[in-house]
Amino acid sequence: MKLKSVLLAALLATTALPALAQTPLPEDPLDDRSAKRIERMEKVVRELRSIVFQGRDTGKPVVVQPAETDAQIASLGERLGDLEQTLQKLNGQNEALTHDLDQARRASGDQKARADALEARLAALEKKLADMDAAAQAQAQQVAAAPAAPAPAADPAAAFKSARQLLLDGDYANAETAFSAYVTAYPDNARTPEARYWLGETLFVREAYADAAGAYIGAIRGWPQTSWAPDATLKLSRALVALKKPTDACKTLDELGRRYPKAPAAIVSRAASTRVAAKCA
Rank of each mutant, 00 (worst) to 15 (best):
L3N: 13
K4R: 14
A10C: 13
A16L: 08
P18R: 02
P18K: 06
A19S: 07
P26D: 09
D28I: 10
L30A: 14
D32G: 04
D32H: 01
K36I: 01
R37K: 01
K43D: 10
V44Q: 09
R46E: 06
E47F: 12
E47T: 10
L48Y: 03
R49Q: 07
F53R: 08
Q54V: 08
Q54H: 11
D57P: 02
D57C: 02
V62P: 06
V62S: 12
V63F: 09
A67H: 08
A67I: 12
A67D: 13
D70G: 13
A71E: 04
Q72N: 12
A74K: 07
D82M: 08
Q85Y: 11
Q85I: 07
N91V: 12
E95A: 14
A96W: 14
L101H: 11
D102I: 13
R106H: 08
A107G: 12
S108T: 11
G109A: 13
Q111E: 15
A117F: 14
E119I: 06
A123K: 12
A124P: 06
A124S: 14
K127R: 15
K128I: 04
K128V: 03
A130E: 08
M132E: 07
A134G: 10
A135V: 10
A136W: 00
Q141A: 15
Q142S: 09
A148G: 02
A148C: 00
P152T: 02
A159V: 01
F160N: 00
K161V: 04
K161C: 06
S162Q: 15
L166M: 09
L168D: 15
D169N: 10
D171C: 00
Y172L: 08
Y172H: 08
N174Q: 12
T177W: 00
A181V: 06
A185I: 04
N189R: 00
A190N: 04
A195Q: 00
W198Y: 14
L199G: 07
T202E: 06
R206F: 01
A208R: 05
A208V: 08
Y209R: 09
G214D: 10
A219T: 02
T226G: 01
D231V: 12
A232N: 01
T233S: 09
R238P: 13
A242L: 05
L243W: 05
K244D: 15
T247M: 04
T247F: 05
D248W: 04
A249M: 01
K251P: 02
T252K: 06
T252G: 05
L256S: 07
G257D: 10
P261M: 02
A265K: 13
I267V: 11
V268S: 06
R270D: 12
A271H: 05
T274W: 04
A277V: 08
A278S: 01
A278D: 01
K279V: 14
C280S: 03
A281M: 08
